[in-house]
Amino acid sequence: MIETLPELAHIVLQNGEAVEEAPFLTDVGAAALAVGLASLAAGYAERGIGAAAVGAIAEDDDMFVPGIVMTVLPETLVIFAIVAIFLVQ
């Protein structure tokens, strides 16, 4: 293991140079990732709310509008994440 270290370091350094030419993650890419993760989180949050909303609607049709409003509330997470795109541009 230890004997191979210099070689390994060499390769890593070479890679390091390569990164400067084509970075693994650009600013815009990172922002896109942020939006994606935020969407995932929003989806997870909506899972429970949606289930509860459907339950409420099944019992009482009048709950349809409040149910939809509640269900899409976590969508605000994604809107905040979109701010990151404007920040990096």
């Binding site: 429970g48 709310i49 289930a51 509860a52 909303a53 459907v54 339950g55 409420a56 019992e59």
Partner: peptide, 14 residues
């Protein structure tokens, strides 16, 4: 399990 759905319905019936 789906406690959210069941809870919403149960509370309404309650």
């Amino acid at each position: 399990s789906n406690p959210e759905y069941v809870n919403a319905r149960v509370r309404s019936r309650r």
